[in-house]
């Protein structure tokens, strides 16, 4: 302490300072010391962390991947409705974990006409935002070729969404799935912006971001994702790349596949057969 005369004002100021900040300082110091003694957040062990506590499942044994054979898709949209039922996705035409696009090349036009089940015309055809079916459009045009393309989260190897998440609420698991921790997401929607594929959306009820999980609660129990389960034509293929006999391994071995927007460097893990340059 400086050896100066202590005026009353100084004393009063010191009291105010000591009572307010002194206690905070002391409290903070005690708390910091105390919490430092607690076991801190776990760090991945050098020998590799164990698998999360999922019954009868070791994520080190699996590397999941998804295939889409667009040549087989009939645009029935059973996948879209099944996904909404399985994952309790909002029942409107603006929130989808998976969706189906239709590309129609009309004679004499350079660019395809594209619509999805969310298009107002198709919603009008189904009569409700809760049911989906493609309207029989383009009957009057001369159509050169047309096809459907199912879309979903690409579960990228270098996911832009995970890169931009400020908290670590979205992450890539060891078995190759990009998940969202709904109890940790702050709802900033930066990931929605960052996803080049439009796969993410904001859940207005839970106030967090939502997207396809490849039905992680199903695949860890040995089941197929709901959309694959209900696809009546085998246009959706799912499996484990570690298993050489799995549908996806065979699909990748037998086909030359494309991924969407490879130039973004995200390295998607949904592989397409039978798409076209205009599919992005």
């Amino acid at each position: 302490m400086d050896d100066e005369t202590s005026a009353d004002e100084v004393q009063a100021g010191r009291r105010a300072f000591l009572t307010c900040f002194g206690s905070a300082l002391a409290g903070g110091a005690v708390a910091a010391t105390a919490t430092a003694l607690l076991p801190g957040p776990a760090r991945a062990a050098a020998g590799g962390a164990p698998s999360p506590a999922i019954p009868d499942y070791d994520w080190k044994q699996h590397q999941w991947a998804f295939g889409v054979d667009a040549r087989k898709c009939i645009g029935c949209l059973r996948c879209v409705e099944a996904c909404k039922a399985e994952n309790e996705v909002a029942l409107d035409a603006h929130h989808f974990r998976t969706w189906v696009e239709r590309y129609v090349y009309v004679e004499g036009e350079d660019a395809p006409r594209i619509d999805s089940q969310a298009d107002p015309v198709n919603i009008a055809a189904s009569g409700s935002e809760q049911h989906y079916r493609f309207a029989n459009r383009y009957q009057d045009q001369k159509v050169e070729r047309a096809f459907f393309v199912p879309k979903l989260c690409n579960h990228c190897t270098h996911p832009a969404c995970v890169q931009v998440c400020p908290t670590g609420a979205t992450f890539k698991t060891d078995d190759g799935v990009v998940l969202i921790d709904h109890t940790y997401c702050i709802g900033c929607q930066y990931c929605v912006q960052a996803c080049p594929y439009g796969a993410r959306f904001f859940n207005v009820e839970k106030k967090v971001t939502e997207k396809c999980t490849w039905c992680y609660h199903r695949i860890t129990k040995g089941l197929l994702p709901a959309c694959v389960e209900v696809c009546p034509t085998g246009a959706r293929i799912f499996g484990d790349r570690r298993d050489k006999q799995s549908p996806i391994s065979r699909f990748l071995a037998e086909n030359r596949v494309d991924v969407l927007k490879p130039e973004t460097g995200n390295a998607p893990n949904v592989f397409y057969v039978g798409i076209d340059k205009d599919v992005r």
């Binding site: 989808f96 969706w99 089940q117 439009g198």
Partner: peptide, 9 residues
């Protein structure tokens, strides 16, 4: 034109 369904929000 065409936008991804989720982009409408």
């Amino acid at each position: 034109g065409y936008v991804y369904p989720n982009e409408t929000v």
